[in-house]
Design a protein around this nucleic acid. Structure first.
Lengths: 256, 256
DNA sequence: CTGCCGCCTCACGTCGCGTGAGGGTCAAGC
DNA sequence: GCTTGACCCTCACGCGACGTGAGGCGGCAG
């Protein structure tokens, strides 16, 4: 019922260029199922399926040679392909989420003017997510908490510019310290208002900081000694006080 | 306190090759802060910061030329960079999650032997996530439910091999139909056991199908008419029955 | 039969490096 | 003081995955 398609039609559907299809034909990665008498390429349904697979693996960073090897490996069934794709995607997503956490952490560090070691800055770039499918189950169980850990363990980044930002941060820090020494409880209305101001400053200056992320930051203030030290230097006990205020404020807002 | 670093040291830390650093120097993307009298490159801390930025954008698929433009654009502050990176990451993650949903959908389709149109197969590859930061707020609000929609709207894929898989699926379908005509309630113990068997088959044959994903599939059975039709053809009312059974089973297990 | 668009095959250009070739540098050990 | 070996330098060519014409045939609409 559905007839063959020309290069141009296939290119339009798959959103690749005609040249790309020519290239795939040249290197034998995707040869059309047939040709017209005049030599025009005619792509069949099965060719489209293969093209989709090719694009999928390509998007995940595989070379065309590798893709050919993957797709032409007779020992893996289509089912197995889908399973692999699912795994690869999750590995890639995890990796990007680590990067996102690293960026969030970097914003915090930049805001507070904390210096990070060179090694730390590149920690997150190391992982070769590409080969993760060969170690299948190994990281299946280690991964979800690795991602949670990365929120507080992987610190990085520093830069100029915080002239103004830092001033605002310092002003807020002063208000926290004042509240602390005045004996105001972190879970009081005033304490939570200050936590909310903290969250608001991050949102204004950097990124949309929801209560979940804010909790993560609070945990980090206690887990990462550089952050703890920064707050303790302002006023002894401030790291714990701010942590408690943020948690209380978050619970008051999203209730968990 | 921290001295300059040689190419080799920087390469080791950032996990790139020396050649890459040479290249970045050649094209003026990253020139070391200084040189020794003998001409050895010496990288300073600020160079490392820039390198990290470069690697970040590179990993997100930007060309070196684009990266240079981004980093040398004096109008964007470091703060703005972090914000952009955060956005880009989330856009990229959303895109991959759409792909993941598409793969899950494909597994379902393959399992049930449903044919998909060529256009559908490539639907998910279209979006140019690269440019998403230029339309910043536009999709800020449309995106989260677009991703939810994609679970049930974007269907794709088909392939051979389901000889065995399909037989197992057919067997299960027979049991559902039998239960339905026998008047067994979907939220009864037997109904939920069948839903659990359904989930188990997906897990065995394809991917780890948790209760959240299982719910998604159940919704899809009602939302995507091709799936609805497939079940209704087996027995009238089966699509709704199975949907109810899956939801009941999921609630019994994760309680929400 | 005349456009005109789409298809074909060369074939050279580009980007982001990889991979030597040929040679200088520098701290360590004999 | 001299050699050794690890590290650095600058060419310079090669490669993967296409981009980008050039020059020409096919097909069908007016």
């Amino acid at each position: 019922m559905s007839k063959d398609l020309s290069v141009g039609q296939v290119a339009a559907i798959a959103k690749v260029t005609v040249r790309t299809l020519h290239h795939y034909d040249e290197i034998g990665l995707l040869s059309p199922g047939g040709r017209t008498p005049a030599g025009y390429r005619r792509y069949r349904d099965t060719d489209l399926d293969r093209l989709q697979q090719i694009l999928f693996y390509r998007e995940l960073g595989f070379s065309l040679e590798e893709i050919a090897a993957i797709l032409d490996d007779g020992t893996v069934s289509p089912t197995e392909h889908l399973r692999r794709q699912h795994e690869l995607l999750h590995a890639r997503i995890s990796h990007l989420q680590e990067l996102a956490a690293a960026v969030e952490h970097a914003m915090e560090a930049s805001m507070m003017g904390i210096q990070l070691t060179p090694e730390e800055k590149f920690e997150v770039f190391g992982r070769d997510y590409q080969e993760s499918w060969e170690t299948e189950a190994e990281q299946q169980y280690g991964e979800s908490d690795a991602w949670q850990q990365s929120r507080r363990r992987t610190g990085r980044y520093t830069k100029a510019d915080w002239a103004r930002i830092k001033a605002e941060g310092d002003a807020l820090n002063g208000r926290y310290a004042a509240a602390l020494t005045a004996g105001i409880a972190p879970d009081s209305a005033e304490g939570m208002a200050l936590a909310e101001a903290h969250r608001q400053q991050i949102t204004d200056a950097y990124y949309d900081c929801g209560y979940a992320i804010h909790r993560g930051l609070a945990e980090m203030y206690l887990a990462d000694e550089r952050f703890t030290a920064t707050y303790e230097r302002i006023a002894p006990g401030l790291a714990h006080w701010l942590h408690a205020a943020i948690i209380a404020n978050a619970e008051a807002h999203d209730g968990s």
